[in-house]
Amino acid sequence: MKKELEKRTVTGPDGQTFEVEPLIDYYCEAHPTVQPPAYSKIIENLFNWARSESIWILGFGTGCGAIEMRPLMTPRFDAYRYGIQWRPTPRQANLLIISGYLSVKTLKRVIRSYEQMQSPKYVIGLGSCTINGGMYWDSYNTIKRLDDYLPVDLYIVGCMPRPEALLEGFNTLKRMIRAGNAEGANTYAANFDWYKTNQKRVIHDWDMPDYNW
């Protein structure tokens, strides 16, 4: 547990003393809930179409695969044509790409980022390392199966996959969203305890709230 997250007594500027328990005072304890789709089928279809045509990616490169995302912004591939944009903050992003191997230390940050994203949200596992560990299959510090820890909508295989493979992956994801099959956020909320158990089994020093909104 980090020092700043421990319970402590603070003296205010006007001499008052009060107790602070950061995990309860600074964070919201409510667990995620399953979010139902819009009440009308037509509206939900419209929203799903808009979601599929406007995918905002969180700019968080977790491993070497992040290098394959950069060319997508360049004139040669230009993913902006397909409504795909990069956002610098998890609050505004819809798609988290786990680009390559994921070490346990990064997994902690990834979980926080994922939980700060707003539903509906999607996860793409990029490269072999996210599927079965890839070349890091016997490493002591990288996770082997990403879908134990986060609800993955789509894997893109390869070591590394080319930017073309990524574009094809985005198109597949779009078809899934339009068909209403990409409900990763709801899977996460429904199986929240199972995911948390898995996450805490590998992250030994869990020094954050269970759910970061």
């Binding site: 599927i131 299959w137 016997d138 490493s139 199966r145 089994r201 590998v202």
Partner: peptide, 15 residues
């Protein structure tokens, strides 16, 4: 390291 990895992480079948 191999023993630790097998003990800590769940492996996917078929590797």
């Amino acid at each position: 390291t191999r023993h630790y990895a097998e003990k800590t992480f769940t492996q996917r079948e078929g590797r």
